[in-house]
Every structure is written in C-alpha cells, then in structure tokens.
C-alpha cells in the first residue's frame, strides 16, 4: 500500500513542467465551452484538451407566433416573448447543452419527419461547432495556449471538417502528436453502446486501432493517451445498467451499477503503460485511478447545468507531478 502522504514537497514544479487542463463530454453546452476556453488562462495551463462528445443531444423548439415567440424549457413556459427575451432564452438553451430551433408552426411541425429532423440536427450541430471555433480563435490566438479537440462517439462526422479548418484549435482524433517532450495519442471512438452512436467500434477493432496508433510512438514513458471511453471495470466506468428497452435496471430499489468501459482500452493501457490516460464517456464515474504506472482520469461531466468538470494535470520529470479534479 502506498503511503497516505508522500514526503517532500513539490511547491515549485521543475522548469520543464507542463500543465494541462482536460475536460470532456460537454455535449453542446455553450457555457461549458466558454469556460473551457477561458480555463487556459484561469488555471495557467499550457494545453487545453477537450476529450470528445462535444455536441448536444436535443433541439428545443421556439415557435414564431403573431405576437412574438413561445417555447417551453427547463420547467419554464415562455409565451409571446419579445426578441430580447428570445435571444436570452436561446442563450440559456445553448448554455444547458441544447440547441434552440426557431420557426413558425409549419417549420416546427416538419421536424416530425425523421429525415428532415436528422438534417436539421446535423445543420444545427455544425453551425454550433463553427460558432465555437470562431470564439476559440478570438480568445486563444496569441496566448500561446494550445487547444486540442477530438470528437467522441456521440458526435456526427459532419463536425470534423469545421474542426480541421481552424488555425487555433487542433483536431487530434486518430493522430499522435508531440507536446514538447511528451507525445499525445487521441482516439474519439468508443466501444459499442446500446445506442449505436456514430463513432463506435467492436472491442477487437478498437484495440487494433489503438495499437496501430501506438506503433508510431517514440517514447511510451512520456505518452499521454486521450481515449474517449475509460478502461473497463475501474472506478472510471460504472454506470446504471439498462435493459433492451433502455429502462434503467433497479436492484433493491437502487440503480444497478455495471462497468461499461472498454476492455480494449484497458488491455491497451495495461500493455503500453503510458504516463497518463485521459478519458470521459461515463459522466457519472468521475474518478482517477492508477493502472500500473498509468494515471487514468475521468473528470465526469455536469454539462446540463453549464458546469464544467475537468482535471488539471502537472507533468514533469517524466511523471505526473500533480493532478486534481475540479468543477468550475
């Protein structure tokens, strides 16, 4: 068993120390994204990493009427509001990770059609990402803070293009890049989920993909891996079980918790033993845990309230000097 408190202090990190801020699963929350961008200066970090599942899941309908706009959101009813109030409502919807969708009744009724709705979702999501990229470029240009974003399993492939076009934000899914003396391998895919989301792979293919990416890594001891799903059967991957009908399974009246992480990720971490593993995917399993020498972190997610959950990690001397989970 490791000692409760290590002797010796690290008040002043070594000169070559690097600090990063990792957040994930913000699911379209505008406020979370603005906080994420500002976290660079707020925490004084060198790198900002957003680990996937960045797009929202819902469209909130705002109906244009003869007297103004009407909608229902967050238990509040908005009837015949004026333009200022509508703008405020739209921002509130975005801050909570959903997308406002404005139209007259006929336009909103058209969303009942699956194909039309899917197209509306995709267009709205891409528009949201373009807005974020613009914001990131405005706020980060010239700061010296590098910002990395990868999509996650829930994100449409449509968002890759706008992310790749940016000069400031670095699209890192499927790549291994160098961060000073460290290398960072990123994978936004997850193992198969019951929801069959856009970026999922069977465990064997997932492991193959990760091993292929790792084959180009020069220094495994200084490797950071950003893999969206957490390693299987760790404190980072427990979520309530559901049945085929997506109903939460209860046991003795309480939700039954089961591991939902990836066995491929676990096998990869166990075999490659990188320095640091940054994960997300399971919002309710906020935790950090060592697997061998690898510190694995899942900061969890509270995007629905516009609260940014994240992790600050300080690296130096080929080890993790400090890490802490925050709720900002």
């Amino acid at each position: 068993m490791k000692p409760f408190f290590k002797r010796g202090s690290t008040v002043d990190p070594p000169r070559n120390a690097r600090r990063l801020f990792f957040a994930t699963d913000i699911h379209g929350s505008d406020r979370c994204f603005r906080k994420f961008i500002n976290a660079g200066r707020f925490y004084g970090v060198d790198y900002l990493i957003l680990g996937g599942d960045i797009t929202g899941k819902s469209l909130v309908l705002i109906e244009r009427t003869a007297r103004g706009w009407s909608a229902r959101f967050n238990d509040h009813q908005y009837v015949d509001i004026d333009e200022d109030a509508r703008n405020a409502l739209e921002q509130n919807i975005r801050d909570h990770g959903q997308y406002p969708y404005v139209g007259d009744r006929a336009e909103l009724e058209a969303l009942a059609d699956d194909e039309y709705r899917d197209a509306a979702f995709r267009a709205t999501v891409v528009e949201g990402i373009r807005r974020w990229i613009k914001l990131a470029e405005e706020r980060l240009a010239g700061t010296g803070i590098r910002c990395f974003i990868t999509p996650g399993n829930d994100d449409y492939f449509d968002i890759d293009e706008p992310l790749q076009e940016s000069d400031v934000v670095e699209f890192v899914d499927g790549s291994t890049i160098r961060l000073d003396e460290y290398e960072m391998l990123t994978c936004g895919y997850s193992n198969i989920t019951p929801w069959r989301s856009p970026r999922e792979l069977p465990e064997e293919q997932m492991l193959e993909r990760l091993n292929d990416m790792a084959s180009g890594v020069e220094d495994h001891e200084n490797l950071i891996v950003v893999i969206h799903p957490p390693p299987y059967d760790t404190p980072l991957d427990h979520a309530p079980a559901i049945d085929d009908e997506f109903v939460v399974q209860m046991q003795s009246g309480a939700p039954m918790l089961v591991p939902v992480g990836s066995t491929a990720v676990r096998a990869f971490v166990e075999s490659q033993q990188p320095l640091l593993g940054l994960h997300g995917h399971v919002h309710e399993s906020k935790a950090s845990e060592y697997i061998g020498r690898t510190l694995c972190i899942n900061p969890g997610s509270e995007y629905t309230e516009g609260t940014l959950a994240g992790a600050i990690v300080t690296l130096g001397d080929r080890r993790v000097l400090a890490h802490q989970l925050i709720v900002g």
Partner: peptide
Amino acid sequence: SPTSPSLPSAYARKSTGLV
C-alpha cells in the same frame, strides 16, 4: 409547446445515455 398542443417542446436525437 405552450401554444401548440400538437408540437413537442423538444426533440432528442439518438445518443448515448438517453433512457
């Protein structure tokens, strides 16, 4: 929707976690 009983107030897309 508060003005149109035939309209839902929101649509969710198929994504992980919705139960």
